[in-house]
Every structure is written in structure tokens, then in C-alpha cells.
Computed example of a mutant assay.
Amino acid sequence: MIGRADEANARPASPFAEDDNLLPFAVEPLDLRGRLVRLGPAVNSILTHYDYPPAVARLLGEAAALTALLGSLVESHGRFQLQTRSDGPVDMIVVDFDAPGKLRGFARYDESRILAGMSPGALIGQGHLALTMERDRDAARYQGVVPLEGDGFAEAAHRYFRQSEQIPSYVRLAVAESVTPAGRSWRAGGLLLQYLPEAPLRPRDLDPGDAPESAGLPEEGEDDAWVEGLSLAATTQDHELVDPGFSGERLLYSLFHERGVTVYPTREIVESCRCSTDRIANMLRSFTPQDRHDMIGDNGRIGVTCEFCRTLREFDPADFD
């Protein structure tokens, strides 16, 4: 059975899968909190604005899923940004999350450097990952920067939580391209699990057992509850995160049914760009007359294309005189 925050009694996990939403949950007996994100049309729109090579699209899809997970921790009015700068074939990725659920992103890459079979870590290379949160309520801005060391986004997120937040956390990301009678489309999913006990950490005295080697197992001295939760979360399979026929509630139940899991109202995720004609016009006004003159195209107008959504907007230079 699975519990709901707005219901007194438990109920069966819903068999109905939902796309483009984020499902918060808690495993109270283990002091665990988490987020599960399932992206369909939203991530497909982001990954098809450009003709990305499949390996680059998968990498951007992972970044979008991770940004949705981390951005959901922002209050209802705020922004979160994930940005990489590195020396790999994919030298920059930017994904923005505007609360409560607007997502956009793009990747910059050198296709001539992409080799068959390159791992996500090899595509990114060495560099850094910056995670920035802005709160509208008090105009506060926070940023955490962690190194990229030839590994993927999940490991970079683990490093961020260890170094910056010091919260025991586990991240699992998956991206897949599905083929249906309607055509091909991209899907992505992610799981974030965090250990947030009210009481001080209890000493660990049990080995985690036969959890997968990729689980990112805790170090000696970590709490038994976190060891158990991490071992359960690490059994998640990639296809479970992206399968349109497997609901998020069923996945959470399969992981934590022995302890009991409570789910909270879902949050819708949509692909949405914050660019606008007025915003770009104001940006152009900040340029010098000579800069604007240099931007005039053969048609006598200034054309500006948004890097995120590829929308082209044209302006009459005389409007800025």
C-alpha cells in the first residue's frame, strides 16, 4: 500500500503513468525524502529544437532531469540553473528551471570531436558544474560549483551534495528514445533520495549487503537507516524511470513498500522559454549604436535567435534611434 499526504488511509499504488510531472515522496520510518521526475513531451521538445547527435541529446536529457529534481527544491517563486563549462566535445550545457515547473535547456558541442561509444563523462570532459538558485522572495542568490572529472551528471550531483550541502543524497538518471506508431520521441527520468533525520545520526553497524557496486555506498559511520534506503534506491533500473507504462507510484512502492512510502501532490513540468520580444528589445537598447549597426543583416533588420527555443525575432534598427 502507498500513503498520501491528503488521505488518512493507505491505498494501492496508482497503475497510471503520468508524463511531465514531479512526484515528491517520503519514507518516514527511514527519515527519507525524495523526488521522482518523469519527462516526456517536455524533454522531447528541448532535445529536438536542434538536431543533436543521439549521445548529446541523452546528455542534455540527463541534465534536464537533474535540473527538474534540484529545481523542485526551490520555493514556488524562484529560479534554478544548471550550467557546465568543460573541455570535452560538449563544452557547455545550460538548463533553467523556473518555479513552479518551467524547464528549458540547450547544449553546445563540437560534432567533429564526438566518437562512437563515448561515455557521458568523456563527452563532458574536465571542467566544472555550477548550480545556481535565485529566490524571488528576498532576491537571495546562492551558487555551488563542483568539478567535473570525466564522470556523468549523477556522480557530479553526489559530489555537490557531499561538498556543498553535506546531506546524504542519491541521484539516478535515465534517458531513452522511444519508438511508437506516432514516431520517435525522447523520454527522461530521475530519482533523488535524501536522508534528513530529525535526530542526530545513529552509528552504522551493518554491512549494506549485496547492493549494486554503482550504488555509491555510504562510508563507515553512516546511519543504518540511510544505508537501507540507499541500498533499496540503488536497485532502480533505468527502464523503470522512463517506461511510459510503469507509473511513478508503482516504482516507489516496489522500492519502499516494506517500510511504507507517502506520496505528495505532483508538480507539472512544462517546456517553456523565458525569452520575449520586449526582453530582447531591452537588451538591444543596452548596446551602442555601432554594435547595433554591426548586427544589421542583409534584409536591413536586426535578427536575434534564442539559443534555447530557436525563436527568431527581427527588429527595425530605426526603433532604437
Rank of each mutant, 00 (worst) to 15 (best):
I2C: 08
G3P: 06
R4K: 06
A5C: 00
D6F: 01
D6A: 00
E7P: 06
E7M: 03
A8R: 08
A10H: 14
S14Q: 07
N21M: 01
L22Q: 03
F25E: 04
P29S: 11
L30G: 07
L36T: 05
G40R: 08
P41C: 13
V43N: 02
N44H: 14
S45F: 07
I46D: 03
L47I: 05
T48Q: 14
T48G: 12
Y52D: 12
V56C: 08
A57V: 04
A64I: 10
L66W: 03
L69M: 13
L70W: 05
L70M: 10
G71L: 11
S72R: 01
S76K: 09
H77W: 14
L82C: 05
L82I: 03
L82D: 02
T84G: 05
G88K: 02
D91L: 01
D91F: 06
I93C: 04
V94L: 13
P100T: 12
K102F: 10
L103T: 15
F106H: 09
R108C: 04
Y109C: 05
I114N: 14
L115F: 03
L115D: 01
M118H: 11
P120Q: 04
I124C: 10
Q126D: 08
Q126M: 11
Q126I: 09
H128A: 05
H128L: 07
H128T: 13
L131D: 02
T132W: 03
M133Q: 05
R135I: 04
R135G: 06
D138M: 00
R141T: 11
V145D: 00
V145C: 01
V145W: 02
P147G: 09
L148M: 12
E149L: 03
E155Y: 09
A156E: 11
H158N: 13
Y160W: 13
F161E: 04
R162V: 13
E165I: 06
Q166E: 06
P168A: 09
V171C: 07
L173A: 01
V175D: 05
A176Y: 12
E177D: 09
S178E: 08
T180P: 00
A182W: 14
W186T: 02
R187E: 05
E198T: 14
R202M: 11
R204G: 15
D207R: 08
E220Q: 10
E222Q: 15
D223Q: 12
W226L: 06
V227D: 08
S231P: 12
A233S: 10
A233W: 11
T236L: 04
Q237D: 01
H239T: 01
H239L: 03
D243N: 12
Y253G: 00
L255Y: 15
H257M: 11
G260C: 15
T262N: 11
Y264C: 06
I269G: 04
V270F: 01
E271Y: 08
S272Y: 06
R274V: 04
C275F: 09
T277I: 11
I280C: 03
N282T: 05
R285T: 09
R292T: 14
H293G: 15
H293D: 15
D294Q: 15
G297M: 07
D298N: 13
N299C: 15
G300Y: 07
I302N: 09
T311H: 02
R313H: 00
F315R: 00
F315T: 00
D316G: 07
D316V: 05
A318M: 13
A318G: 01
